[in-house]
Design a protein around this nucleic acid. Structure first.
Length: 277
DNA sequence: ACTACGTCCTGCTTGC
DNA sequence: TGCAAGCAGGACGTAG
């Protein structure tokens, strides 16, 4: 599942492979590939030259030599690939942009939770992204402010850190990992935590995402952009996600097994010994 | 204003 | 063996 590290890997890949290229033709292959509130069709970008690729949380956008930007969210299964023009089409190809260098930028999305949109910027951020909070890697992210905002919330801490309007970039996997690292039970009410505990959660989330980013970056294929959330990091370093029934990795003192509990129609994974309420 | 839940979707896994 | 139910999950709309 693309969370911040995966989206950042895609952003960096796009930056490397499409900045400076001009979009020659566009093709939308699925009705939901474009958000209904998009300011226009994909062909808005015909003849546009890519200037830069930006990101906030899990949202990214391409900027061109014109006011319109292409906003993208990968949803659950979205991918970008840069392939040779005319090469075999992927099964779930949703949109295609022919580039000036003989390649194609392809948006692929099996479960169609992802989307593209034409938008414009206000103060450097697309209007569709203006409600999203800064992520921990944003130079203007102010940790003390976020800690303060989190402490005002009456909801469960996991719900709060998944709220993209409070802190962005964290998804279900990194939320579980961060809470395990900070030894906080996901159902703890945010306002009942100390500032230090909340600060520890944010630090843990930042660190776990940094490590994932490093792993994703090294496994990045030079020839095309392909991120499906399955970087080597997932198999080696996750402490709780996908590890229910297995031993807690807290070292020799904790012999507990990772459990799974229901959370908002989904699941949380945690160590019942390390993460008490 | 805030919270909780349903909805969108496809493919893999589980269980009868 | 075959089929249906369960599960995965981000963001948003709506109901309470």
């Amino acid at each position: 599942m693309p969370e911040l590290p995966e989206v950042e890997t895609v952003r960096a890949g796009l930056e490397k492979h499409v900045v400076g290229k001009t979009i020659i033709t566009t093709k939308q292959l699925h009705p939901r590939a474009l958000r209904p509130d998009s300011l226009g069709p994909l062909k808005t970008f015909k003849g546009a030259k890519v200037k830069r690729v930006n990101r906030r949380g899990k949202f990214m956008w391409l900027e061109f030599d014109r006011p319109e930007v292409l906003v993208a969210h990968l949803g659950m299964s979205g991918q970008f690939k840069v392939q040779q023009q005319g090469s075999t089409q992927e099964a779930h190809l949703r949109a295609n942009f022919a580039l000036s260098n003989g390649k194609e930028l392809r948006f692929i999305d099996q479960r169609t939770f992802g989307w593209l949109a034409v938008d414009t910027l206000t103060d450097g951020v697309p209007n569709l992204v203006s409600h999203i909070a800064r992520d921990p890697f944003d130079p203007k992210f102010i940790k003390a402010e976020v800690v303060s905002n989190i402490q005002k919330k009456r909801g469960q801490i996991k719900k709060v850190i998944l709220d993209q309007e409070i802190i962005s970039g964290i998804g279900n996997i990194y939320a579980d990992e961060a809470l395990w690292r900070a030894k906080i039970h996901p159902e703890t009410i945010a306002s009942e935590l100390t500032k230090t505990q909340i600060s520890n959660v944010i630090t843990a989330a930042t660190n776990v995402m940094l490590r994932a980013l490093a792993a994703g970056g090294t496994s990045f294929d030079e020839l095309y952009i392909n991120v499906n959330g399955e970087s080597g990091y997932f198999e080696r370093s996750l402490a709780v996600y996908g590890r229910e029934g297995e031993q807690c990795r807290r070292g020799s003192r904790c012999g507990s097994k990772i459990i799974r509990i229901a959370f908002a129609n989904r699941s949380s994974r945690l160590c019942p010994a390390c993460q008490t309420r």
